[in-house]
Design a protein around this nucleic acid. Sequence first.
DNA 1: GGCTTTATTTTACGTTTGTAATAGTAATTG
DNA 2: CAATTACTATTACAAACGTAAAATAAAGCC
Lengths: 121, 121
Amino acid sequence: MTISDAESLVMDVLWESQPMTADDVVQALAGRAAWQEATIRTLLNRLLKKKAIAAERDGRRYLYRPLLKRADYVHAESKSLLDRLFDGRIAPMVAHFSARQKLGKKEIAELKRLIEKLDHE
Amino acid sequence: MTISDAESLVMDVLWESQPMTADDVVQALAGRAAWQEATIRTLLNRLLKKKAIAAERDGRRYLYRPLLKRADYVHAESKSLLDRLFDGRIAPMVAHFSARQKLGKKEIAELKRLIEKLDHE
DNA sequence: GGCTTTATTTTACGTTTGTAATAGTAATTG
DNA sequence: CAATTACTATTACAAACGTAAAATAAAGCC
């Protein structure tokens, strides 16, 4: 079961700080999404049902924390895009970006350093 | 208006060859998706409504061709992922992949060549 | 111990998506 | 020209999503 775009915004805040009460999550999201509290609670419940997060009772409320790891989510999403659009190969993807939105000097330097390192391993 | 995953499979075949009749599309998809003809026709009609493709009458049937360009679609998808998950920066994305699924020698060489070229421009 | 507050659980509702079947129409053929 | 064939257009329907309001339940206060 995959998590939706809206749900992933909720995951974001839980990945940043953990565990959180529902109210904490609402506060944290205040700046990023124009959602009513009720909406956020719905999303929390859907994430629970999908086992992407867990809830532990703490007195009268719950403490939520992620079960799904950010790295795993990021990988699943990235890999799927890479496979669908670039035949699973990274170089073409980088090439695509560089063709589209000129990479800055810094980006290039950063990439260069990274590749050097990979190359020497 | 964005096109869905299923719809993008239809776009794929139209990007490969163009224009095509509905029946051509059905044939082309036979190997890639287990869809009934009716399903594919629905997808074609939705793509039409979304203006991602155009249809031109040809006698009793239509010839379909893409309006949305593959490069634009690819870019929109990739950019959105890059922004959502890697703060819009490419190096971290490459780093992520290299950490997750060891890049092959060839991949690295390919990347290296690419970066060299970018660096000298 | 009722009333209010606070937090959770249930229910709602319009869209989009995946997946298709059915109805309608134009062309072809006997 | 009536019947069949080929296509297209309309309709269907359940699940997922975005977005939220209403109903409960539990706790604290007067």
